[in-house]
């Protein structure tokens, strides 16, 4: 039992290395992203639906929108408050990108953090990126 010191330091190093991911995350943890509202969105005050709904369900909403527009030709959306929107991701003043003008400062802030990469922009045009 004269190797006690060595064993304990070894154990300590092992434990440290083993739990390194935890320490690493504690130190480098990025705070949750703050999507930046454009001046236009600020003026509009509200989104298509409540903020909670949008955060949780915006992908579903977009999915319903695209099906509805393409399949039925209906393009106007009336939210529960009676406000009307043009059911569009990227075209027109009333679309997601028409109001949240900067995709980079808004959508991408969250998406980069959550590591989601919607393929929508392969086709839909972000006016800011337009050549």
């Amino acid at each position: 039992m004269n190797d006690k010191k060595k064993i304990i330091t070894g154990l300590a190093i092992f434990l440290f290395l083993f739990t390194l991911p935890i320490w690493y995350n504690l130190v480098s943890a990025t705070s949750a992203p703050e999507p930046e509202l454009s001046a236009k969105a600020k003026a509009a005050k509200t989104c298509v639906r409540s903020k909670e709904y949008m955060v949780a369900e915006h992908m579903q909403l977009l999915d319903v929108w695209r099906d509805t527009v393409v399949r039925t030709g209906e393009r106007t959306y009336t939210n529960p408050d009676g406000k009307q929107f043009n059911m569009s991701l990227s075209t027109g003043e009333n679309s997601c990108i028409g109001c949240h003008v900067s995709k980079a400062d808004f959508c991408d802030k969250c998406h980069n953090y959550a590591s989601v990469n919607p393929y929508c922009w392969d086709c839909h045009i972000d006016p800011k990126e337009k050549k």
């Binding site: 369900e57 106007t76 959306y77 009336t78 059911m87």
Partner: peptide
């Protein structure tokens, strides 16, 4: 139902 089928209409 309320969240899945809101009102939609054509122009």
């Amino acid at each position: 139902a309320a969240t899945a089928t809101p009102e939609k209409a054509s122009n």
